[in-house]
Simulated assay, not measured.
Amino acid sequence: MNRVEYEIPVRCRGIAVVLLKRFEDEYRVLLLRRSTPVLRGLWCYIGGGIEAGETSWEAAIREVREETGITKVDLYNSNKFDQFYSSADNYIYLAPVFVGYVNDDQDVALNHEHSEYRWMTFGEAIDSAAIPGNDEVLRFVEKHFVKRTPTEWLRAVPKG
């Protein structure tokens, strides 16, 4: 008897962004409380879809601007992915995670998707992050983007 194998589709249609801002002597992470039906009331970092004609880093910059009002961000590719399996639709979702350093003069202005925000310590953010796997992403970002200086090779926005 021949067995037919089936592949689970992988979809990569979105991005995630972890924003960092220095407060005195430590970096803090921006988490937003969702107010829309998807993930309502849960704390998350920035995420969103990639629109037609955009690169993933362009989508990351747009989503940061739309969700937080922040227009100046030093953006890096983290080389990490948000991921989950949708049992309802039988696919694996992957989203590249970007890390953005925010200048002191940038304030947050939330859009309709969120009800509040907090710049959290990494400990607070890891304890508050709603989706399994977000804690791993945050630990990774702390290790490679806070405790170390990222290499220019990871800079997301091309110079020029």
Rank of each mutant, 00 (worst) to 15 (best):
Y6R: 12
Y6Q: 07
I8M: 10
P9Y: 10
P9K: 09
R11S: 02
C12T: 07
V17W: 14
V17I: 12
L19F: 09
L19P: 03
E24G: 00
D25V: 13
D25R: 13
E26R: 10
E26K: 09
R28A: 10
R28M: 13
V29K: 11
V29L: 06
V29G: 07
V29N: 07
R34M: 02
S35P: 01
P37W: 15
P37M: 15
P37V: 12
G41S: 01
G41W: 00
W43V: 00
Y45L: 15
A52I: 03
A52P: 00
A52Y: 04
G53D: 00
E54D: 01
T55Y: 04
T55N: 01
S56K: 06
S56E: 08
S56A: 06
E58D: 05
A60Y: 09
I61W: 11
I61R: 14
R62G: 02
R62Y: 07
E63G: 05
V64E: 02
V64S: 04
E66V: 08
E67L: 03
G69S: 11
G69E: 07
I70Q: 06
D74R: 07
D74K: 07
Y76E: 05
N77W: 11
K80G: 00
D82S: 11
Q83H: 09
Y85L: 14
S86F: 01
S87W: 15
S87H: 15
I92D: 03
L94S: 01
P96T: 06
V97Y: 09
V97C: 05
F98E: 05
F98G: 01
V99H: 08
G100H: 07
Y101A: 09
Y101Q: 09
Y101I: 13
Y101H: 09
N103S: 15
N103F: 15
D104R: 14
D104G: 14
D107S: 14
D107L: 15
V108C: 10
L110N: 04
N111P: 00
E113R: 12
E116Q: 10
Y117T: 15
M120F: 15
M120C: 10
M120T: 05
F122H: 12
A125D: 05
S128H: 02
A129Q: 05
A129V: 11
A129I: 12
A130Q: 02
A130T: 00
P132M: 00
N134H: 14
E136S: 02
E136Y: 05
V137N: 00
R139I: 04
F140V: 03
V146I: 08
V146W: 06
